[in-house]
Design a protein around this nucleic acid. Sequence first.
DNA 1: ATGGCGAATGCAATTCGA
Length: 262
Amino acid sequence: MQIATWNVNSIRTRQEIVINWLNNNPVDVLCLQETKVRDEQFPLAPFQEIGYHVSISGQKAYNGVAIFSRQPLQDLSMGFSPILGEDLVGDYDEQKRVISGVVDNVRIVNLYVPNGSAIDSDKYVYKLGWLDLLKQYLEKLQAEQSLEICICGDFNIALEDKDIHNPKGKAKHVMSSPPEREALSHILDLGFQDVFRKFISEEGHYSWWDYRSGGFARNRGWRIDHHYFTSNLYQQATKCWIDSEPRKLEKPSDHAPVIVEY
DNA sequence: ATGGCGAATGCAATTCGA
């Protein structure tokens, strides 16, 4: 089984690149973030024609998540509300950042974690509140079911300094500030492990490079797209890698796909 | 320290991303 995650930064703009990538990398599941399209405008047909079931949760212009899967997803759910209830979730499901389903007895949770904009901004506060809600969501999910879980997506957090090309100033930088790292660590304490770091411990491996200032050409990147597995699934993992090839194409997403195999 | 680039909206310039 191969599960990939990829922030495509607009599925309509990246349609050909994603189709070509799937033809060359026929993964069982592809989790997408930043589809940036209303559900009624999502280009379903091109992906269905190459053999994928398409599950989507989108909105106009921003955010948006989707799961492409060879098998139909079971127990599909969008947002936090189906698990946590609307009273607790409040407005947090207005931004489409969570989609989940079961494939082959593994629950997949595909996430687009808020960016946070800048330390101490309203969006940063929103990000920390969202991460607290995610922790409660996963806790309740684990209490209600016994399936192994794969959380993956764009976390917009680099947990370790070696996940950043230049960690100088990290404490005041969104994506690497101590409160964000603590929030993600508390989530991982529920029993999740970083699959990429099972296989590769060295620095210099990134999944996102800024469009500006030649970030990719200089390999000035961040590793912020992750797969976290519960322990039995983690034990079964055989591979995890970042495919930076699509980042070299014309009009690329600023993120590269990350793939796990188990 | 600042801005760089790219996408969506909607048709110019602004918002947002990371």
